[in-house]
Amino acid sequence: MLKSSTSFQNVRLKVAILCISLTIQTAGAVAAAVPAMIDSFANRSTTEIQSLLTIPSFSIMLFIILSSGIIKYIGKRNTVLIGLTIALLGGLLPAFTSNFYLILLGRFLFGAGTGLYNSLTISLIGDCFERDEQQNLIGLQSATAALGNSVATFIAGLLLSVNWHSSFLVYLAIIPMIIIFSLGYTKRIEKETSVEVKNDTVAHVNKKLSPAVLLGIFTLFFFFVSVIVMLTSSALAIQQLGLAHSELLSLALSVAGI
């Protein structure tokens, strides 16, 4: 834990760690763009267009698994910065191309980048803080992720009024996140926490997941399956029912997130 940091450094570190949670739930922020994309890609099936919302979830899962090995080689700070950069490039790619396969690649890259640092949004809190401060920050991390998703979905809906390409510009928000994190979580801080983290890892290496934790994992799995169905189908349902003001879907999803 960081015992020598000043109050300002402490606040800056908290902001740096929390800010990287803002986009970990935003893969579906562009859900309202699905009908417009279906119209644009008349030669593609509805399922193929919907896959643009679900493919990031697959790559997130894949790279969460791979991230532990990557962290060992390049460290946590570099892993977060590389992950954010990949997510930025992948998130913005659909804004500048109409090639379906490039868009699919961009969505995969967004998920891959997010997956690289996803687990670190929690573990960095555990590395740098303890006791009540740690628990409070974990609660704030969850709230930050939900808030980021709600705001991103709302902004993507506003950008959709231009065209569906523009809705992907919402991922420009990753740029200030890269800056804030690189300034707040410095190499010095990473070095200060690395020794304690190694000692904690040795002390807890033999711990196993309890049945309650496993139940929680399966419960969350089925919860997010239902959320993905809602994200990928809501826009299509509004379109097929011929409801007015379908552009308000992003606002509705934002409110649901809050």
Rank of each mutant, 00 (worst) to 15 (best):
A87G: 04
P35I: 00
I86W: 08
V213D: 09
A256C: 15
F218T: 10
T85K: 12
F108K: 12
I49S: 07
V15Y: 02
T201L: 09
F58C: 01
P211F: 15
A36R: 13
N78M: 11
T85M: 09
A33L: 03
T201V: 12
S123T: 15
I24Q: 02
L18Y: 05
S45W: 13
H245F: 14
N118H: 11
I70M: 12
C19I: 06
L81F: 06
S233Q: 15
N163S: 10
F222P: 00
A42Y: 11
G115L: 06
P35G: 13
G75D: 03
S4K: 13
I71Q: 09
L236P: 07
V170D: 05
L251S: 07
A237M: 10
Q50P: 12
G90D: 08
I122R: 03
I122E: 03
T144I: 02
S45Y: 10
I125Y: 05
A29I: 00
A173G: 04
K208N: 14
F110C: 01
K14H: 03
A212Q: 11
Q50S: 06
L52R: 01
Q135M: 08
F96N: 07
G157T: 05
I38L: 12
Q240R: 10
I17H: 05
S161V: 13
S250V: 05
V162R: 09
F222S: 07
E247L: 13
P176R: 12
P176T: 02
L109A: 13
I86A: 00
L183C: 13
G148V: 02
I217R: 04
N199Y: 13
F96E: 08
A112R: 09
A145C: 02
P35L: 07
V197S: 15
L66I: 06
L160I: 01
W164H: 14
S98G: 06
F221A: 15
